[in-house]
Amino acid sequence: MGLVEKGVFGKKPLKPVTWLLNYSRKYSLWMFQWGLACCAIEMGAALASPRYDMMRLGVIPFPASPRQADLVVISGTVTDKMAPAIRRLYEQMPDPKYVISMGSCANCGGPYWDSYSVTKGVDQIIPVDIYVPGCPPRPEALLEAIVMLQERIQHEGIGNDELAARWRGEYVPVETDRTPVQA
């Protein structure tokens, strides 16, 4: 994307341009559902039930393949047998890509912390942007995670090559109103 990599007319993009770009991105998140275990049902409730209805936040939950997705929600227990598939599908997603780890199992292993077949945390395989605690988290918690991610996307800067780095898949710390900068 020339705007991001080269800037406007060879200069840094102006702030309104940055704002508009981020604003457009944050309300058109294509979300790939990686439903693994119990959390998948709660994710389904957040997506499909009229009470929660995630689509009103600008999340489109039905991409046909990970190659069209901006966001993946890992919801459920990641086992060692499943881990290579998760890594492979994550690599198929185009940059910039975001990961939400939903539930204790995906965060750290959860109740299976001493199991022989469970990967203790999906962050051992792929980088995670937002962790949602809970076993399983309520659908509202997932909605909160989406809102936090949208704030994050809005605050991503273009001017200092930050977004270009993000486009290349590098980790860039982002300061939002509510989250402090992570080292």
């Binding site: 275990a37 227990t77 109740p111 299976y112 199991s115 022989y116």
Partner: peptide
């Protein structure tokens, strides 16, 4: 086997009240 979490083995290392937490799932 993609969702094998080893309940039977884990049960051997938990007390009875703790196991109900596992078998919920």
């Amino acid at each position: 086997g993609y969702m094998h979490r080893g309940y039977e083995k884990l049960s051997e290392f938990r007390t009875y009240p703790q196991i109900t937490t596992l078998i919920n799932r």
